[in-house]
Design a protein around this nucleic acid. Structure first.
Lengths: 277, 277
DNA sequence: CCCGGCGATACCCGACGGGTATCGCCGTAG
DNA sequence: CTACGGCGATACCCGTCGGGTATCGCCGGG
C-alpha cells in the first residue's frame, strides 16, 4: 500500500462522498474511484458499501480508517523529523507563559555550552507540546504534570512546586493569606476558566474559554475569572493580579520530554544541561 | 513521501550499497539511485554520504532509517489488520505448550456462544505473540507476565499461578518436596535453558537454546536441562518428568491482550467470554 | 416522468518509474 | 604507472499508470 492510496481512502472514508473527497484532495472524482477500487482489489476486501445514493464504511473499512490514520501520522512524523535533523538548530516546545524563568535559565545555560546550536522556542497552547513532539515538529518539550500526558515519551523531571491562586487585585478573597480549592469553586463573580480538552474543544460552562497562560492572566486582571497556577508564575505578575498559596492544590512537576530513541548530539547536550541545572 | 520510497531508502541504508540494495528490492541500480536522490531533494536534506567507494548514513539519514521502519511497520500492520477484518474468523496467538488447559476452556466456551466465528489458533515461540499482535497478524494473544511485554496493548487478566520446577525423573533433587530458585542455579548436570531475547537471539551459556515449551519438556525428559514453569504445565507431564513447587519463583499471570481500540463484534465476544470464564 | 446527484466506465494524455548502456571516480594489484 | 574492477551517477528509451474530460447507469425526489 502506498501512502497516496491511504490518503485517498481516508479522505473518502471521512467524507463518505467521492465527489467531496476528490475536491479535498485536489483531483477529479474518477481517478479517485479507480484508486479505491484498486486498493480493494489488492486487499481482496470490500472497504466501502456503495449504493447509488452514497457510501458507507464496512467493518474492514473502519479498521483501515483507524490504521491508515496511524500509519499516515507515522509517515508525516518521519518526514518532519528527518527534515529537521538535516537542518541545524533545535526546536523546543513550551507552554506560552509557563515556566518562563526555568526556560530562560535552561536556554542561557545551554547557549553557554561549547558546541551549542540555535534553539527555536515554539510557544504552544495548552497540551499542544506533546502533539508537536509526537508529530515530529519539535525536538523536545517542557511539560507539566499532572496536566500533560507523557505517554510514549522519554522524560526528565526538572522542578516541582506548589500552586497559587491568581485573583484580581481588590477581590474580597485577597484578604486571606491562604486559600483552599473549595474556596475557589463556584464563585459566582469569578467563574472557573474552561481549559481545552486534548482534542482542542472546550467544555461548557460559565467561565471564559482559554488557550494559554497569557490569556488567563489578562482575564484574571479584568476580573473575569480566577486561576490556580504553579508558584513560579508569580515572577511575571504585575499589580493588577494577586497570588495566594493554595496548599491543597496538587503539586506541579515541570519536566523535559523528547521522543524515545532520539539522541542527536545537540539534544543530548540540552538534556545534560537540563539535568545538571 | 510514498512507502515505496521509504522501502528503497531502508534497503540502501541497511545495505550501505546501492547495488546490493537494488538486488534485494528486485530492481536495477540506476532507478534506485534516482529515487533516493529525488527523496533527498524533496526533503531538502542529505541522507547519504557517497564517496566513490561506498555509502554512509548522515545524521538525518539515521533519523529517517529509524522513523521509516516505524512508519513501514505501521503501514504493514494496517494492511494485515484490514485484510483480516475483511475475512471471517479470529486469529488467536498463544505460546506453544503453555496454558493449554485455559486455552482449551476459552475456545470451548467461545465456540458455544451464539454468533461465534471460527478461531484460528497460532502457536508461537517465546515472545512472538506480542509481535504478531503488533504486526496485525493476530486479533488477540495469550501473554504471560512477567515474561511478555504488554506495552501498547489492552489486556485482561485471566489467571495467576505459582511455578514449579521440572526435573528429569530420578534426578537427586526430586527427593525434595519443594525447591528454591537458588537450588536450581548453576547445576552442573542440568544447565539452565537459554530463552530467546526479544530480538530472537539467544544468550551464551552451557544450557540448550530453546524456542518453545515443547522443546523444553523434551530436553528436561532427556536430562539435559531443568525448567521453572507455571503450575498448570503439570497437566501435560508424563512420568519421565517430575514437578516440584518453587515457592520463591515469581507468580505468573496469564492474560489476554489485543491491540488498543480494536473491538470488532467477534473479538468483543471473545473478550467477554474470557472475562466471565 | 423528468431532473439531479452520485459513482462507475470509457478513453486519452503526459509524467514518472523502471530498464540498459555507459561514464567517472577511485583504490588496488601487477 | 597503468590496467582493472567496483561503485554510484548520468543518458536515453519505453511502458505503465496516475490523472483528466466526457459520459453512462442508477436511483430517489419533486
Amino acid at each position: 500500500m502506498e501512502t497516496r492510496e491511504l490518503r485517498y481512502f481516508v479522505a473518502v472514508a471521512e467524507e463518505l462522498n467521492y465527489g467531496r473527497a476528490a475536491v479535498r484532495l485536489g483531483m477529479a472524482q474518477p481517478p479517485l474511484s479507480r484508486a479505491i477500487a484498486r486498493l480493494e482489489r489488492r486487499l481482496d476486501t470490500v472497504l466501502l458499501e456503495r449504493d447509488s445514493h452514497g457510501v458507507a464504511l464496512t467493518g474492514a473499512g473502519r479498521v483501515l480508517l483507524r490504521e491508515a490514520r496511524i500509519a499516515l501520522d507515522a509517515v508525516a512524523a518521519a518526514e518532519a523529523r528527518t527534515r529537521r535533523a538535516g537542518q541545524p538548530g533545535l526546536v523546543l516546545a513550551a507552554k506560552a507563559g509557563a515556566s518562563t524563568e526555568l526556560l530562560a535559565k535552561l536556554l542561557a545555560a545551554y547557549a553557554a555550552e561549547p558546541g551549542s546550536v540555535p534553539v527555536d522556542v515554539r510557544l504552544c497552547q495548552y497540551g499542544e507540546q506533546g502533539a508537536l513532539l509526537r508529530r515530529g515538529e519539535a525536538d523536545a518539550a517542557l511539560l507539566h504534570l499532572p496536566f500533560d500526558s507523557t505517554a510514549g515519551l522519554d522524560t526528565e523531571e526538572l522542578h516541582t512546586e506548589g500552586q497559587v491562586a491568581l485573583l484580581p487585585a481588590g477581590h474580597p478573597l485577597t484578604v486571606r493569606r491562604e486559600l483552599r480549592l473549595a474556596d475557589l469553586a463556584d464563585l459566582p463573580d469569578l467563574p472557573a476558566p474552561r481549559y481545552p480538552r486534548p482534542d482542542g474543544t472546550h467544555p461548557d460552562g460559565p467561565g471564559p474559554a482559554i488557550r494559554d497562560h497569557a490569556q488567563l492572566y489578562q482575564l484574571v486582571a479584568l476580573g473575569r475569572t480566577c486561576a490556580v497556577l504553579p508558584d513560579s508564575c508569580r515572577a511575571q505578575l504585575r499589580d493588577d493580579v494577586v497570588a495566594r498559596p493554595v496548599p491543597d492544590a496538587p503539586r506541579v512537576t515541570t519536566l523535559l520530554a523528547w521522543p524515545p530513541d532520539s539522541r542527536s548530539r545537540p539534544l543530548a547536550d540540552l538534556l545534560r544541561v537540563a539535568a545538571d541545572g
